[in-house]
Amino acid sequence: MGRLNEILLIFLHIQIIFWCWIPSTISIKISPCAKWNRTSEIVAGLGGRGNNPDQLLDPEGIFIHRQSNTLYVSDTGNSRIQAFKLNQLSNMGTTVIFNVTYPTKIYVDDENDGRTIYVSLRNEGRVKKWVQGASDGVQVGGECSMCESVWVDKEKNVYMTSVMKSCVYKWSPQTNIITVVAGREMWQGSSSDSLNSPEGIYVDDTSGTVYVADYANHRIQKWLINALNGTTVAGLSTGNQGSDAESLSYPTAVWVDDETQVVYVADSDNNRIQRWLSNALLGDTVVGGAGMNVEF
């Protein structure tokens, strides 16, 4: 689901780092009108489909650890998490997590005892985290039926997307309490208080705002802290799909520039990455789109 767009999103992140990055230990700064080189460069999976170090099989998620300039890939078909150093000429990946069943999205965090990797496990219905050097992960939070995505904020709260229950959960490690922060638990719908098969999420570390790729409603929803309703920031609020500039079709992932509030979307069925400026009614295509014909 959305294999091409995961590869396109890898490309978009790489373009951001190498062409639009202003050196900073705090954040990446991107002009809202930035242009990308539309000729892609493969940075992971150069060897095609397979299980060798330079290969991937049906990857579902990516995460760029900015401090180490490392690309982490959820290599779903090979049941592993791969790491690729972006500042090296080699395209060989290193397996950092082995034998993990159907990993989807990943989040890499820095903690006192080293780097920690959080993985959403769709078939197991939960999120697990691996501390540096661990041979196995430990579950965090509670049940998350068809767990599709994961995010971690600066307070170490863990956010989890449940496709089956049509909502986003937030688990607090301080209180061990789980709350619903987007959507209505066990309620599919296209109204502003509902989600339908949510997938990728992004959490603004400053405001705590949650952005959700509302997959089957073909839109991106923005949920403020303690809000009972979401606001559509990309796609049509009615939940209708399309391929024009105002529409999306089965979005799988979302990334937001916290400073400019520009939203980037992996628009799965349209084989493109869309950019939506703050309060815009239309998006523009930065990668992919009509005529894109790529096989994996």
Rank of each mutant, 00 (worst) to 15 (best):
A253Q: 10
N52Q: 14
S197E: 04
E199V: 07
N293D: 15
N176A: 14
A266Q: 02
S192C: 09
C144E: 01
A216E: 06
W255H: 12
S207G: 14
S74E: 01
R184G: 05
E111L: 11
P32W: 07
A234V: 11
G200I: 00
T285C: 05
N51H: 08
P103A: 12
A227I: 12
G50Q: 01
N226E: 10
P173L: 11
E111Q: 13
K29S: 15
Y264G: 00
K105C: 05
L46E: 10
Q132G: 05
R219D: 01
D109K: 10
S278I: 12
V150I: 11
Q88A: 13
K128D: 07
E295A: 06
V131T: 14
V152Y: 02
Y118G: 06
D205E: 09
C20H: 15
A245Y: 08
I26K: 11
D214A: 07
H65L: 10
K165Y: 05
S190P: 02
F296H: 12
D257Y: 03
G283M: 00
K222F: 04
A245L: 09
N37W: 06
S247C: 15
G283V: 02
Y72N: 02
V150Q: 00
G208D: 03
D136V: 12
T206V: 12
Q15L: 08
Y215S: 12
N99V: 06
L228Y: 12
D58I: 14
R275H: 03
L8H: 07
Y159W: 09
A290H: 08
A266D: 01
V181P: 01
W21M: 13
C167N: 05
V138L: 10
D153V: 09
L236K: 15
Q88S: 14
L224W: 01
M1T: 15
N229D: 07
W151Y: 15
T179N: 10
S247I: 05
I17Q: 04
S190D: 09
Q241H: 14
T179W: 02
L89F: 09
I273R: 01
A253L: 13
L9A: 05
P251S: 08
V294M: 13
M164Y: 10
S145Y: 03
G288C: 08
S172W: 06
T95M: 11
M160K: 06
F63I: 03
A227F: 08
K165W: 03
I10L: 02
V286G: 02
T25P: 05
K165T: 07
Q274R: 12
T161D: 00
V212C: 03
G289S: 10
A34D: 08
W36L: 15
S90C: 08
N279P: 00
G50N: 00
K222A: 08
L46T: 13
D193T: 15
